[in-house]
Write a protein that binds this DNA or RNA. Structure first.
Length: 98
DNA sequence: CCTCTGACTTAAG
DNA sequence: CCTTAAGCCAGAG
């Protein structure tokens, strides 16, 4: 299926909302769990309407936040106690598998 | 209808 | 660790 369905968008929102405090997940992991064929759609959902969701817990596959919101995101994650080293999240301990 | 852009990812040099 | 390129999909112009 090419077009993204409402159900999938809903699933993405749930998965993101389910990320525990102090942990993080990635665009790719969320997309895969929601049945999307590309992580870009997850980024699109957060960009268009991330209201009410812990968007700061969604980072890129390399463990770094998206450059566009890097500063803000790192600050929020640091407040939650997420292990960050040199601007990079320690995935080994903070990654949350959907 | 076509082109460009973007909170992405993987592979390759 | 750096940059490119290609694949991907939704929106905007």
């Amino acid at each position: 299926m090419a077009a993204t369905t409402e159900m999938q968008v809903e699933r993405v929102r749930e998965l993101i909302a389910a990320i525990p405090h102090g942990r993080v997940s990635t665009y790719g992991a969320i997309a895969g769990a929601a049945g999307l064929s590309t992580p870009r759609t997850v980024a699109w959902i957060l960009r268009v309407d991330g209201g009410g969701l812990p968007w700061q817990r969604v980072i890129r596959a390399d463990g770094r936040p998206a450059p566009a919101v890097r500063t803000r995101q790192l600050a929020l994650l640091a407040e939650e106690g997420v292990p960050i080293t040199d601007g990079r999240v320690d995935m080994r301990h903070a990654f949350h598998e959907p």
